[in-house]
């Protein structure tokens, strides 16, 4: 029997949300989220706030594949880092406003994602993860070799942050944050739209039962490739904003550890929850920042331990567990009201 007929992702997903589409609590949460977004750079150092949003969208892009299509990509650094370099090169050489450069980076990520996706979606599970990792490593070595273009180990330094001559944004990371955040918001909106579209419904079907989806006439491979390309575009958008924020693109962005970290952030937030990525990024980035400024050397040890703890205690991640708790509470109350 062909692999596609039987293979499906072995992920234990959280229960779907108990809240109906028009539940007021949804709007309340959205408003709360937006308020946090606006106030974040008042509470924490603005570049760190920007990092949280970039990593949040990056994790959402991974969740689009892992949680909603059933594909574990272990090579998403290729799109995040590839776009970081491409965005940096466009901004440096053409001097365009940075949102244009970021869009260019995201398009580049989608262009390389198409052949990578085409060649890797035929595999599932661990094989898919390994094929995507192999492609990401290829890109890493290419970037390392093409010193003239990428600066090799020194990275791409001094990426300009031009924004229509508005100096507040160009020079003050507090104001830059709001422009960057607006771009990340567009990315989040696209991800939300995709998940809650007819296309997203088919992706769920592909995730849960590929053979059945094919018998209904859906071309499973093509849907996977499209999801992969959309996901890469979002990862690219996040990576581009990240590079502009740091005014620096380095090999670190293309390293396999970056691919690993984003999977960790996604799992921490909750697979298949979409919003969990932002929460996971909030935890990981602030923690890393806190530990780095405290001069502690073994950051990986702490984040690793937290990861192990959360996965063991809350299998569905932070968001997923919260959703399950809310679900139980609401069902309990309904039951009591009936009795």
């Amino acid at each position: 029997m062909s692999e596609q007929m039987t293979a499906k992702v072995d992920v234990d997903l959280a229960q779907p949300s108990i809240l109906s589409r028009r539940n007021p609590l949804r709007y309340l949460m959205l408003l709360g989220g937006l308020a946090v977004l606006v106030l974040l750079p008042y509470w924490i150092y603005p570049p760190v706030a920007m990092d949280i949003l970039c990593w949040g969208l990056f994790a959402i892009s991974v969740d689009l594949l892992l949680g909603f299509t059933g594909l574990l990509s272990f090579g998403h650094a290729a799109f995040w880092g590839g776009s970081a370099y491409c965005t940096g090169l466009i901004a440096t050489h053409w001097g365009v406003p940075f949102p244009v450069a970021v869009v260019g980076g995201a398009v580049f990520a989608m262009l390389i994602a198409w052949p990578i996706g085409y060649l890797s979606v035929r595999r599932t599970g661990i094989y898919f993860a390994m094929v995507t990792l192999a492609f990401a490593q290829m890109l890493y070595f290419i970037a390392n070799q093409a010193r003239d273009l990428t600066g090799g180990e020194n990275g791409l330094q001094g990426i300009p942050r031009s924004f229509f001559g508005i100096e507040l944004v160009e020079e003050d990371s507090f104001y830059f944050y709001y422009v960057g955040a607006a771009m990340i918001l567009v990315g989040i909106f696209i991800a939300w739209r995709v998940v809650n579209s007819p296309f997203g419904r088919v992706l769920t079907a592909v995730r849960d039962n590929p053979a059945r989806a094919r018998a209904l006439g859906y071309d499973v491979e093509r849907f996977k490739i499209k999801a992969f390309v959309i996901s890469a575009g979002l990862a690219g958008l996040a990576g581009g904003v990240f590079a502009i924020s740091h005014q620096f693109a380095s090999l670190q962005e293309l390293m396999w550890t970056t691919s690993g970290k984003v999977v960790l952030v996604t799992v921490l937030g909750g697979i298949g929850t979409l919003w969990g990525g932002l929460v996971g990024a909030g935890v990981v980035v602030t923690l890393e920042d806190f530990l780095a400024s405290s001069g502690f050397e073994g950051i990986g040890l702490i984040t690793g331990s937290i990861f192990v703890l959360i996965v063991l205690l809350f299998r569905h991640g932070i968001w997923g567990t919260g959703r399950n708790v809310l679900r139980r509470y609401v069902l309990d109350r309904r039951k009591r009201a009936r009795d």
Partner: peptide, 22 residues
């Protein structure tokens, strides 16, 4: 059933529209 009925119409390709169209 909506998923099965939508299959020949090609609606499943629409990622930019709301799922409520189903």
């Amino acid at each position: 059933l909506e998923l099965a009925l939508a299959s020949p119409t090609g609606m499943g390709k629409q990622w930019w529209r709301s799922v409520t169209r189903m």
